[in-house]
């Protein structure tokens, strides 16, 4: 079968395909709409339609500003599950949105890598108890690093902070990890080693010194725990006394 055609027809077709309305696939229309799951939870858990609208509008606002909607949807679901009043959930969502905005400003000011994961982790950190000055210091100090290690270091910093680990010690460990290129994803949960070490009477300073040596040699947190005299099995919750 033979057909005569011209490339201009092909070009027209490809152009139409490229600039086709994204809504045709339903993606654009749903891009900033709360998920069906959270809409259902709000409809079942909130009696006043105005309260329900206020909750969902916060999710839409977060999405419209370029933030991942999942943390905000999760906070709505969490509040409803705990029996928190809609007005209190709205206030919390507003505070969370402010924290995400602050995080985005820090990333922009420092020229750091930006991704949905980084925005989420930094926004959650700003929303939590982490001091903004500490987070800004981290972001600006390691802004030139690749997104993967940057994210790992950020999560590691936040978890260590929640465990009451001194930020100065964290920085010395991060410097060693970034300089040696050894800051792989397992370091994200280095806090587990710290907590077990404390339980065994090992000081944070000793843990840090050991970890720096391991990081400079390209090792992992498992190597740190081995050098400190306990194994991965000891990191299991089953072996910890509660």
């Amino acid at each position: 079968m033979k057909r005569r055609c011209s490339l201009i027809l092909l070009a027209v077709f490809l152009t139409l395909w490229t600039v086709r309305p994204a809504g045709a696939s339903g993606e654009a229309a749903e891009a900033c709409a709360p998920s069906a799951a959270v809409v259902g939870q709000v409809e079942r858990g909130v009696a006043d339609p105005a309260d329900a609208r206020a909750l969902l509008s916060r999710i839409e606002a977060a999405c419209a500003e370029g933030f991942p909607p999942a943390p905000f949807e999760g906070k709505v679901a969490e509040g409803l599950a705990k029996g928190v009043s809609p007005a209190r959930i709205v206030r919390t969502l507003d505070a969370k949105l402010d924290a995400f905005r602050d995080g985005a400003v820090v990333l922009r000011d420092c020229g750091a890598p930006v991704s949905p994961q980084i925005l989420t982790v930094l926004g959650e950190g700003m929303f939590g108890e982490a001091p903004p000055a500490m987070l800004r210091d981290y972001v600006c100090a390691y802004a030139s690093r690749q997104a993967g290690p940057f994210l790992t270091g950020l999560e590691m910093t936040l978890l260590l902070h929640r465990a009451g680990f001194d930020y100065g010690l964290t920085r010395t460990l991060l410097d060693a990890g970034f300089e040696s290129g050894s800051l792989a994803p397992p370091w994200r949960y280095f806090v587990r080693v710290v907590l077990v070490a404390r339980q065994r009477g090992v000081t944070d300073e000793t843990v840090t010194r050991t970890a720096i040596d391991v990081a400079r040699g390209g090792g992992s947190p498992s190597d740190v725990s081995a050098r400190l005299g306990f194994t991965d099995r000891d990191l299991s919750g089953r072996s910890l006394d509660r």
Binding site: E78, K82, I89, E129, L159, R162, L195
Partner: peptide, 16 residues
């Protein structure tokens, strides 16, 4: 041993 304020006045536990 790892916790976090949930923004509603409660304390969430963090499980790794």
């Amino acid at each position: 041993r790892l916790t976090r304020d949930d923004g509603f006045g409660n304390t969430n536990a963090i499980l790794i």
